[in-house]
């Protein structure tokens, strides 16, 4: 019970295969992925990341999202408890559908990144009309 109730204020750290040269932790952003017949929606939690510090790339069917947390140490204060060390949110997904790269839309609000990836025309299911023939 306690575990689930506190989940909203937790973040998960991971070790990457290619480590970061800087001494900053890399976090796995909690992500929802929805698929519609014509598009893919990727929603990632990236608290402390604004539109200037987020980067989305799509290369060879691999979608990578990176967000750098902008956290500055307040001056004149001593750290009492450090539960949120500023770091980098990064995650990659291999896409299984062809995406129309020109129409990808990304926006970030309240620390939540939303990506809409429209499927390419040829990848969308096509309904073939069947006519009764004589």
């Amino acid at each position: 019970m306690k575990e689930t109730a506190e989940k909203a204020v937790q973040k998960t750290e991971r070790r990457e295969v290619a480590e970061l040269a800087a001494d900053r932790p890399v976090y796995t952003p909690a992500t929802d992925i929805f698929e519609k017949s014509d598009s893919l929606l990727v929603v990632s939690d990236m608290p402390g990341v604004d539109e200037k510090s987020v980067d989305v790339t799509l290369e060879n069917d691999v979608l990578t999202i990176t967000g750098h947390q902008q956290a500055a140490e307040p001056e004149g204060y001593a750290a009492v408890r450090r539960g949120a060390v500023p770091g980098v949110f990064r995650r990659s997904f291999t896409l299984t559908a062809d995406i129309d790269r020109a129409r990808i839309q990304a926006r970030i609000q309240n620390g939540v990144l939303r990506l809409e990836l429209p499927k390419a025309e040829e990848a969308q299911p096509r309904k073939i009309a069947v006519v009764a023939g004589g």
């Binding site: 204020v9 937790q10 750290e13 991971r14 608290p47 009492v80 408890r81 450090r82 539960g83 949120a84």
Partner: peptide
């Protein structure tokens, strides 16, 4: 390369007259 455990993402900063 597996994920390590989650931690509560809360920071507390303090000085003599107040906290952040």
């Amino acid at each position: 390369a597996a994920e390590t455990a989650s931690a509560s993402a809360v920071n507390v900063w303090g000085r003599e007259d107040g906290l952040l």
